[in-house]
């Protein structure tokens, strides 16, 4: 009942077209050829999560990436000492992308904090699609490099006074 109401209220464009609009605003996809863009817009599926639902489970090799359309999610890590809250993702964030490129047993869990709507891409779809548009490969690598560098830069800027122990461990962008 609810869902049909929702649907009727939405604009008359199909979900595929809505996805297309979203991708156009995303850094990585915005510059793609229209043909490639269509295929990706088609392959992305929408998924809803309720507060507490897992997007990503620590130790799983789920091979998925998420683009958050609405809502927020928290990142946590479970170890011998229990669960540590590590941060938050929100609308417009793209996460899990590294898992699209290769096997990645998750080091963190990501849980929906509010009601969450995501675009989801799987490794299988992504690799098959990339095979069809090989011109994207350098773009994928470039984006990854940029993101790793940005990540560390932000880490250094925001936590300039890291503890001595931690400071020794920085340098992931040197890999």
């Amino acid at each position: 009942m609810n869902s049909s109401m929702e649907r009727r209220q939405q604009s008359e464009s199909s979900e595929f077209q809505q996805n297309l609009e979203e991708l156009r605003q995303m850094d990585f996809f915005s510059a793609l050829s229209i043909e490639a863009l269509k295929v990706f817009a088609y392959l992305f599926t929408r998924e809803k999560f309720k507060p507490g639902d897992h997007l990503i489970h620590q130790e799983d090799n789920d091979g998925k990436a998420f683009y958050i359309l609405s809502g927020t999610a928290v990142v946590v890590r479970q170890d011998e000492r229990g669960e540590t809250n590590l941060g938050e993702f929100g609308e417009g964030d793209f996460l899990g992308g590294l898992a699209l490129l290769g096997d990645m047993r998750r080091l963190f869990s990501v849980r929906a904090h509010t009601d969450l709507l995501c675009l989801v891409m799987t490794r299988e779809k992504f690799t098959k699609a990339i095979e069809q548009f090989p011109e994207l490969v350098p773009r994928v690598m470039e984006t990854m490099v940029k993101r790793v560098r940005l990540w560390e830069k932000r880490l250094l800027l925001e936590h300039g006074g890291l503890c001595d122990q931690c400071r020794k461990k920085v340098g992931v962008s040197l890999i």
Binding site: V39, L43, E124
Partner: peptide
């Protein structure tokens, strides 16, 4: 959308 893609299942699931 799919006109130029090869007949692989992953493209046709949806």
């Amino acid at each position: 959308i799919l006109g130029n893609l090869p007949p692989e299942n992953v493209f046709f699931e949806q």
